[in-house]
Each structure stands twice: as structure tokens, then as C-alpha cells.
Nucleic acid binder design. Structure first.
Length: 558
RNA sequence: UGGGGUGUAGCCAAGUGGACCAAGGCACCGGGUUUUGAUCCCGGCAUUCGGAGGUUCGAAUCCUCCCACCCCAGCCA
């Protein structure tokens, strides 16, 4: 982005101000995922924001696992999250866990009890709910709200000691049951959960709620700006209440921004989990998913995701961003660096009748037309080649520049050929093309001065390798699958994955370079999948090239 | 009918009362270059900022009212 167009998002403006006024000397942020699922591109926004601030301001950023609910969290997720953050290109100052501070949180809770600001409530969950009131009516005080400090201290101690079953008591803050902000109606601080925790094992049977853990963890870590998404805005009053009433070591400030929404996909962990469990997709790293693991497997370079987030920006507005913008970001990062190669995804055999049988010739071609530094490679041409099936039409429409009966086209980097015959199978389907080539048109321009508009890619029948290509498209046909009253899985795009098993590739692709995304000329960017086996390469299509012809032919139809 | 937010082009998004008859990106529409219908390049794309009033010499920016959309009633985060 040019300097003149660069603007600073509202959070950085706040930080700049806090630095100028001397409120802070160093900025500390944190990225606080709950380890109950894999990270997706929405998290990338938060990661980009928090770690980006750390990097640009010479500050600190913690990777903090918000592990306050042992029933949903596990080690697999902890590991995956670390890997994804690292892959995205960020380094944390420290890894921490909310559970690192369980002792401290407990002491804070006792502190509130001593101040008369917390009490043990022994109502049932149903009673608590119905006594909370509604959006427009105040709640009702719990009959246990006025227990003595002594009694509360004892009960809380017994909760901690494991003397009660789950759900029998909770510790609540004593704030205001008639507050307009529901979060202030005596929120639950601790609940009993006889459940093993991935890190603290069986040491605890009471676990703090998010609201009671998050801000205090921020304060303990010296977080200066606690950045979270808009749905926590109503919680800020509670966040501040704890900070004010507890002897915390610092005073963090919560600032909210809006989460990222992408069209033609779903982002919520609940929906992603459902797609995986019901096997609509193959797992958390299915290349159709917006998870970081999925995007990584698909072939998205981390840089392209960072650029995308930067392009989208940080605001407080609801948004639904066009996935086309993401696709544009990959193309933009891949175009200058991806080595070119020719690959035929849907092969149609062409026999060049006037090319001598058994004869081959080698052509030296550039790996990147715009960057000679990327070198050249040698490819082989012979009498038989494969071309793309849709580079031939029996009855070509206007503006179709490719092959048709008695039409000419250039084989990229090689000769001009003319289609002189069509071989069909019993059903009439084109099985093979017979062509003649003009030996004077090798490589450069035609001596006759003849211009051929169409250039198509090809591969030598005798020299290509067979491969599988997985062509991905958006997972949902609907731009906003969760809207409307249909079940969201009904709008899953049946063509979101198309596997082609008979692709013909240049032989060099048998051993693809490590971590390299290739451009299959005219077809898109491709990345080797981990399902590849010796003799059976598998490539994922990251994204197609921009395709003006597809647009023109679409217009013709509509 | 309670509280909290947000409204600038099809999608994002700058703009923080005066050089705004409003940046930039994506998309879209032209045109040029091109042995990828790719890339690249040039041009077009809001007399108007959710609406209506008002303050001011001057308003997208301030005030008033109205409208629309989003979030909140887990012992989830």
C-alpha cells in the first residue's frame, strides 16, 4: 500500500495517543483463543492485530490460552493453535494460560467475599435463569444474596474442596440485579465442574468463568490494550468492575472491534465442528474450510492472508467480505513468485500428422515470463500431445480463439497447428484431434506474418506424468449460508471439490520443489497435497487465474 | 416496550467542522501491451456521506428527531 493511502486503524490511534500522553511506555497485547477448536481466518484478524501491534510498537504479545472450561478443551487444539500462529508468521513473547493464574483468581474471589462483593448462591440453574429477569424487566435478588461473609467463605471453601456435586452452588458477584446491562446482574464467577483439566489435572473442581478470568489475567500479564470482538462490548462494564474492585497489578483497557465475516463460507466454531463431525468435509484441514489449517493445506501462503487482513481493515462495523478479495490477495502474492508449468487437467489427445513419428525436439522455456532470473527449463515436443478438452469446440462461438474444425492455434512456446480432423467414439464424443503443424512457426513469430490469436498449453504424451488435481470451489453456493431459514448445509456447493485423476503434467512436477506453489499456465495456482505418493502426485488448486473468457462466455449465456 | 453498538459506492474502507462537487482496494465497465483470454498499463465508476430538520461564513464531520441493521436474558468464550 502506498504511504498516502495508509491509514491507521482506530485502535492504533488510541495506542498512539496513550503513548504520547505517557499513559504507557510499552504496549502489551495478547491473543486469547479458547483451545476448543482450530483457528480460522477470523482469528487471523485478531492475530494480525495483536501481533502486528507488538511488532510495530516494539511491545509484547502473549499467546494466552483461555482454558477456563475443561469440558470443551483439549491438548490437540492447544498444539494446533500454536502451529497456526507460528505458520501465520508471528512470534509470541510468552505462551500463557488462564489456568496459570487459577490460584490468583481464587484469591481474588476470596477477596471479593471479604469485601461483601461476592456470595455463594445455592439456587438451581433454572432458578438463577428465571430470577435474572428479562431484557426489559429487572431481576430478582437470590434468597442467598445476603449470606454472611463467614458463611460465604466456608461455602466457597467447601466448593473448592469438592464437597458438592456439579451445579449445586456457584459463586456470584454481588452487583445489581436490576442493572440494565444483564452482565451486571450478579454474574457467576465460579462454577463446580468435577472434570479433569488438560493442564491442572484434578487439582481443581471449581473453574472461573470467562468474565472473572479474562480481565484479571490481562492485569497480571500487564496487558495494556485488551482487544476483543464486539460481542464482548457489554462485558466491558463488568471487566472494569473487577479491575476497580480487586487489587490487580495493572489496569488494562478493553477495546472491541468487529469480527471478520467472509461470504460463501461459515466461520463459527460450532458450524465448522458440525461440518467435520457430519463429514461434509474431511477434517479441520479440509482445503475448502476457512481454517488456517485448511488454507495452509490448500496452499495459501501466510503472507497472502496477512495482506488480506490488512486490506480489510479494523473497524466496529458489521461486515461480510467478498471471498473474491481473499482470492485476489493470493493471486497478487503468487503471481511474481510462482514458477510456471504446463499441466493439462482434462486431456484431449492431439496427433500432429505431419510431425515425424518417433521424433522429438527439446524446447527451452522460461519458468516465469516476467522474471528471467527464475531461469528456464526444457520441455519436449513430439507427434502426440495432450491439450485441454475445452480448448477445442466443434462449433465455436464468436470471440472463441481456440481450436475448432480447420482452425489454427499456437501450442505455447512451440508451433502453430491447424485442426484437420476429428476422431469420435461411438457416442460422437471427441476422442482425438488430428492436426498439422507449420514447421516455420517454431518458437517466435510466424514468418508469414500470420497472427494467431489463440495460444494453448500442452504436454507431450510420451513425456508427461499422470497426476491427480483437486479443484476446489467455494463451499457454499449461498453468499451467507447462515441467513434465511433453510438449514445451512443445504446450500453446500456440490461442486466444491472436483477431483481429476487423469491430469497430464510436465515430468518435472513428479518431484515438486519443497513449499512451492506452481502456476499451471492458464489454469491457476496449485500446491502439492500431503496425500501425494511416489508415482501419484496430488495437487490442490489454490485459486484459478482471472478468467476473462469465462466471463465472456457466461455473459453469452445470460 | 431495557441496555449496548453501527450506518460513507455492489463489497471493504479513509475521512477526527474549512484545500471534500469524499482517498485507496476489491468487483464491474471500457481501451492498450502481451506466445498465459494471466500479469502489466491507462481511463470510467458517490455533486454525495441512512433520512429529515437545525447550528455555522462553511458539516460526512456539531445538535435534535426519526429510520434500518447487529449484539445481550450460558453454571460457553
Amino acid at each position: 500500500m502506498a504511504p498516502s493511502t495508509r491509514s491507521v486503524n482506530f485502535i492504533r490511534q488510541i495506542i498512539d495517543h496513550d503513548l504520547e500522553t505517557g499513559m504507557h511506555r510499552q504496549i502489551v497485547t495478547r491473543f486469547p483463543p479458547e483451545p476448543n477448536g482450530y483457528l480460522h481466518i477470523g482469528h487471523a484478524k485478531s492475530i494480525w492485530l495483536n501481533f502486528g501491534i507488538k511488532d510495530d510498537y516494539g511491545g509484547q504479545c502473549m499467546l494466552r490460552f483461555d482454558d477456563t472450561n475443561p469440558e470443551k478443551e483439549n491438548q490437540e487444539y492447544l498444539d494446533a493453535i500454536e502451529e497456526d500462529v507460528r505458520w501465520l508468521g508471528y512470534a509470541w513473547t510468552r505462551i500463557t494460560h488462564a489456568s496459570d493464574y487459577f490460584d490468583q483468581f481464587h484469591d481474588y474471589a476470596v477477596n471479593l467475599i471479604e469485601q461483601g462483593l461476592a456470595y455463594v448462591d445455592s439456587q438451581t440453574p433454572d432458578q438463577i435463569r428465571s430470577n435474572r429477569g428479562t431484557l426489559s424487566e429487572p431481576g430478582t435478588d437470590s434468597p442467598y444474596r445476603n449470606r454472611s461473609t463467614r458463611e460465604n467463605r466456608k461455602l466457597f471453601h467447601d466448593m473448592k474442596a469438592g464437597k458438592f456435586p456439579d451445579g449445586t452452588h456457584v459463586l456470584r458477584a454481588r452487583i445489581d440485579m436490576s442493572a440494565a446491562n444483564l452482565n451486571l446482574r450478579d454474574p457467576v464467577l465460579y462454577r463446580i465442574r468435577h472434570h479433569e483439566h488438560p493442564r491442572t489435572g484434578n487439582r481443581w473442581c471449581i473453574y472461573p468463568m470467562y468474565d472473572f478470568a479474562h480481565g484479571q489475567a490481562d492485569a497480571i500479564e500487564g496487558v495494556t490494550h485488551s482487544l476483543c470482538t464486539m460481542e464482548f462490548e457489554d462485558h466491558r462494564a463488568l471487566y472494569d468492575w473487577f479491575i476497580e474492585h480487586l487489587p490487580v497489578p495493572s489496569r488494562p483497557r478493553q477495546i472491541e472491534f468487529s469480527r471478520l465475516n467472509l461470504n460463501h463460507t461459515v466461520m463459527s466454531k460450532r458450524m465448522l465442528t458440525l461440518l467435520i463431525e457430519q463429514e461434509y468435509v474431511s477434517g479441520w484441514d479440509d482445503p475448502r474450510l476457512p481454517t488456517l489449517a485448511g488454507l495452509r493445506r490448500r496452499g495459501y501462503p501466510p503472507e497472502s492472508i496477512r495482506n488480506f487482513i490488512g486490506a480489510v481493515g479494523i473497524t466496529r462495523k458489521n461486515n461480510l467480505i467478498d471471498v473474491g478479495l481473499l482470492e485476489n490477495c493470493v493471486r497478487e502474492t503468487l503471481d511474481p513468485v510462482a514458477p510456471r508449468t504446463m499441466a493439462v487437467l482434462d486431456p484431449l489427445k492431439v496427433v500432429i500428422e505431419n510431425y515425424p513419428e518417433g521424433q522429438f525436439e527439446t524446447l527451452e522455456v522460461p519458468n516465469h515470463p516476467g522474471n528471467p532470473d527464475m531461469g528456464t527449463r526444457k520441455i519436449t515436443l513430439g507427434r502426440e500431445v495432450y491439450i485441454e478438452r475445452d480448448d477445442y469446440m466443434d462449433d465455436p462461438p464468436k470471440k472463441y480463439f481456440r481450436l475448432g474444425p480447420d482452425r489454427e492455434v499456437r501450442l505455447r512456446y512451440a508451433f502453430i497447428i491447424r485442426c484437420t480432423g476429428i476422431v469420435r467414439d461411438a457416442s460422437g464424443r471427441v476422442q482425438e484431434l488430428r492436426c498439422r503443424y507449420d514447421p516455420d512457426t517454431r518458437g517466435g513469430n510466424a514468418p508469414s506474418g500470420r497472427k494467431v490469436r489463440g495460444i494453448i498449453h500442452w504436454v507431450s504424451v510420451q513425456h508427461c506424468i499422470n497426476a491427480e488435481a483437486r479443484l476446489y470451489d467455494r463451499l457454499f453456493s449461498s453468499p451467507d449460508p447462515l441467513s434465511g431459514d433453510r438449514v445451512f448445509t443445504e446450500s453446500i456447493n456440490p461442486a466444491s471439490l472436483e477431483s481429476r485423476h487423469q491430469c497430464k503434467l510436465e515430468p518435472g512436477l513428479g518431484q515438486p520443489a519443497a513449499d512451492t506453489r506452481y502456476q499451471f499456465e492458464r489454469k491457476g495456482y496449485f500446491y502439492p497435497d500431503r496425500d501425494s505418493r511416489p508415482g501419484h502426485p496430488v495437487f490442490n488448486r489454490i485459486v484459478t487465474l482471472r478468467d476473462t473468457w469465462a466471463r465472456i462466455s457466461r455473459q453469452r449465456i445470460t
